[in-house]
Design a protein around this nucleic acid. Structure first.
Ligand code: FES
Ligand code: FES
Lengths: 141, 141
DNA sequence: ATAAACCTGACTAAAATAGTCAAGTATCTA
DNA sequence: TAGATACTTGACTATTTTAGTCAGGTTTAT
C-alpha cells in the first residue's frame, strides 16, 4: 500500500499555500520552487482542487491561488477526494452482489478490508489543514 | 492508496489454510480452487510465507502446507512483511538526512505521513489470523 | 513407476503513475 | 496597448509496478 505522489503533492502544496496565504494569492510557480514539484503537474492538481472549490484562482499578473475555505475546514479527506486519491482495499466492486472471486458471497476477507478502509479514512477525516500548518510552525520555534 | 492483490491473496490463503488446518496439510491446488487464485501465483506467495516460517510445507502426494504457528500468533503485520506488502507513505528514504525534495530538511508533510504509516501499521499489528477465522465462522452461524 | 504436489527463476502483458508538452486565455503593469 | 505573468486545458508518453504466466525442475506416497 502506498501513497501516490499526486496525493502527497496536493497536501504539500496546500500546506504551503495555507502558510503564505495572508492577503495575496500565491503563484504555482512559487510553490513549485519551494516544494520542488513540477509546475505542469501542479497545474493539473490545482485544476482539480479548484473544481472542488477548495481553492480560488486569481488570473493575470500577481495572480495565483488562495484558499477558498478556512484551513480548519479543509480536511485531508477533502483534499484526497478532490484529486482522486482514494483508499481502495477491497477487490470486489463495492456495491455488487458478487464477491471478489465472482461468487455470490463475499470472500473470506472482505470484512477485514472494509474495516481497514474505515480505519484509514478516519485518519483523513480528522486531520485538517490547520493542524498541519500549526504542527509545522511549532516545530520551527 | 490501495492494497495489492499479493497482500490480499496472502491473507485470503492463510485464512483458508487456518480453517482447514486440522491434521492434514492443505494443498495449494485446493486453496486455488476455493479462493479463485492462480496456482502459480499462490506458489510464489507461499514460497515467501515459508521462508518467513509462517507455514511449513509437506512435499509429495497428499502434501500441502500447514501453519507453523498458532493462528493467534500470526498477525497481519507478519503476513504482509513476509510477502513484501509494505506500507509506504513517505517519499524520502526513511533514514536519509535529506528530505524528499533533496533538501537538508524534511518536507512540510513528512511528519504527517509518518503518523499515517503508524496508524495503518497499528491496525496490522493488532489483527491476528485467529481473529479473522473467528470473525468468519461467527458470520456463518 | 507414476502421479500429486512442492519449488524456483525467468519472463511478460497490462495497468497505473508521474510526469511532459503544446496551445491557449485572462489580467496587471509599464 | 504591448508584454509579461500566471492560470487553463487536453493530449501525449516514459517509467514503474503489478499480476500474473511459463517452463522446468524435485520430493514422496501409493
Ligand atoms: S474483497 Fe469483497 S468479496 Fe473479496
Ligand atoms: S516525505 Fe520525508 S521529507 Fe518529504
Amino acid at each position: 500500500m502506498k501513497l501516490t505522489s499526486k496525493g502527497r503533492y496536493a497536501v504539500m502544496a496546500l500546506v504551503d499555500l495555507a502558510r503564505f496565504n495572508n492577503i495575496n494569492p500565491v503563484s504555482l510557480r512559487d510553490i513549485s520552487l519551494r516544494q520542488g514539484i513540477s509546475l505542469d503537474y501542479l497545474e493539473q492538481i490545482f485544476s482539480k482542487l479548484r473544481k472542488k472549490e477548495l481553492v480560488q484562482s486569481v488570473r493575470g499578473t500577481q495572480g495565483g491561488y488562495i484558499l477558498n475555505k478556512k484551513a480548519k475546514e479543509i480536511k485531508l479527506t477533502n483534499i484526497f477526494d478532490a484529486v482522486d486519491e482514494k483508499v481502495k482495499t477491497v477487490q470486489c466492486k463495492k456495491d455488487s452482489k458478487k464477491g471478489c472471486t465472482g461468487k455470490a458471497t463475499k470472500c473470506l476477507t472482505h470484512n477485514l478490508w472494509d474495516e481497514l478502509e474505515n480505519h484509514i479514512n478516519n485518519f483523513f477525516k480528522e486531520k485538517s489543514l490547520e493542524d498541519l500548518v500549526k504542527d509545522n510552525s511549532e516545530r520551527r520555534v
